[in-house]
Design a protein around this nucleic acid. Structure first.
Lengths: 264, 264
DNA sequence: CGCATGCGTTCCACTGAGCGGGACACCGCT
DNA sequence: AGCGGTGTCCCGCTCAGTGGAACGCATGCG
């Protein structure tokens, strides 16, 4: 699964200038996005290679970034710095959402013995905000990881309760195929979203990763607008919508109510 | 407690240039550090006021930062952006540490019915990496929050097993008094650390916040070096070291072994 | 109703921050 | 010794970036 997760470099490339980002901020962003799951520690030369920046530029920038704890040195290499973790925890909604969801997710995991996912939408991707249920079932989703919304259970259920503009944006992004079963056309998506609205949850089987299935339900905020998606995920054989569906839906309702009470 | 937590603005100010940070990165850092717990959303003028930058500069920078999802717009205000959360989850050790600790912390909370803290050291502060046990007992520690190491249970226990250089650095930072009971002199600290080493855990009562007590134990990594601190925290009357001490120590040992097995 | 005060936005001329080519010292290999 | 790799440093050219000032638009107050 890891291999199909979008890395942030791709995100940044999408976000704007790609080849030579002619601004300091662009270069800094490029440097930050050079780090990922598989390469958490990088040297100056490697960073220069990945970003296309001059080695001297990288050297100076990394030095300055270290001063602000955006990066940290370990020997002669750099890793992402502690300030990023602290800032990440200050990002509104994600933190409060994860906190409010924690007990509910624990109960849901306990009751179903499946992996529980909480995700929000960021543009055309979903971002996992909290995950419960060990890494026993292999690499897989990661907190902070991204996946195209139309290819995941949580993503589809969030799209189903989103505005038309959001769905059009999703279609415009091209509906990339993660597996042969990924939804590929606007018509298919439209149909699927209608089906989801009619049953109040979304099902997914092998649309994001071969052999993995998922049941997801929508989480609403104070204003009745969709905020997040809650899902149970596991190997295709283990996920039975008939038994698990009501469980996720109940948990999602409970979370929605909690959020409403807290004014989130 | 919130009021005594060091905000990141202070951190940045410490880190280097304070008045006019004559570099783009400095200005960006200044903008990011303008956001905190209490003011998660800020407008251009307010940002200009807090940072001392020209309004036009803030306007342009925030626009660019939005493009990289370092900030996000909500109406006419800005909040910290989703990319920061994603980057924060990529910071090495914190994420892996929190993941490995999750089940152990859950059990510890269940067994003791107290708030469980996992923290690492960053410079002379501790940073909370994971917290379990609702917000029922009022505002308090926050994931991603910082506190001077010498004033907290987790901090003291980490110092007790750190190198002499680290302790000297701590003393050099001035041992700020959070409460009348906070350790204030190098001698006191030296004595306390020796006591901690002799019993394998640290106790704290009202040294960081009035009326709050805490029992903490050290967490070691693969190389037998101190990595984190694990603690139980609650109202002074509720924390009995005799019964809770063995629990935290056991949990900390278990976590250390888990980390060792995973090569962290 | 004007007037005042706040907001976000835009324009633009000056200038020094920041870029990167290139040179350097230092490894560990062969 | 020679080589290919690393991290570090210097320095002259240039344009990205700065901030003062002016703008249009909401508020709210007298």
């Amino acid at each position: 699964m890891r291999s199909t997760e979008r890395d942030t470099a791709g995100q940044v490339a999408e976000a704007g200038v790609s080849a030579p980002p002619d601004s300091v901020l662009g270069r800094v962003a490029l440097l930050l996005s050079a780090f990922d799951d598989r390469s958490p520690r990088l040297g100056v030369s490697e960073l220069a290679r990945r970003t296309g920046l001059a080695k001297s530029t990288v050297h100076r920038l990394t030095g300055e970034m270290e001063a602000y704890r955006l990066l940290a040195r370990e020997g002669t290499e750099y890793r992402l710095g502690g300030w990023l973790f602290e800032l990440g925890e200050l990002v509104p909604t994600t933190r409060t959402l994860a906190e409010a969801a924690q007990p509910i997710m624990e109960d849901l995991r306990e009751a179903t013995q499946q992996r529980v996912h909480l995700a929000v939408r960021e543009g055309t991707d979903v971002v996992y905000v909290s995950i419960m249920g060990g890494t026993a079932m292999g690499l897989m989703s990661r907190v902070g990881g991204r996946l195209p919304a139309h290819a995941t259970g949580v993503g589809k259920v969030m799209l189903a309760y989103s505005s038309r503009a959001v769905i059009q944006e999703q279609v415009a992004a091209g509906l990339p195929q993660l597996t042969p079963r990924t939804i590929g056309t606007a018509q298919e998506l439209e149909l699927e979203l209608r089906r989801i609205r009619s049953i109040g949850m979304s099902l997914e089987a092998g649309e994001s990763h071969e052999g993995i299935a998922c049941v997801a339900a929508p989480v609403f905020g104070a204003n009745r607008r969709i905020i997040a998606g809650l899902s149970l995920t596991g190997f295709a054989g283990k996920i039975d919508p008939v038994t698990l569906g009501p469980a996720v839906r109940t948990a999602a309702f409970m979370l929605s109510r909690t959020l409403r009470e807290q004014g989130i």
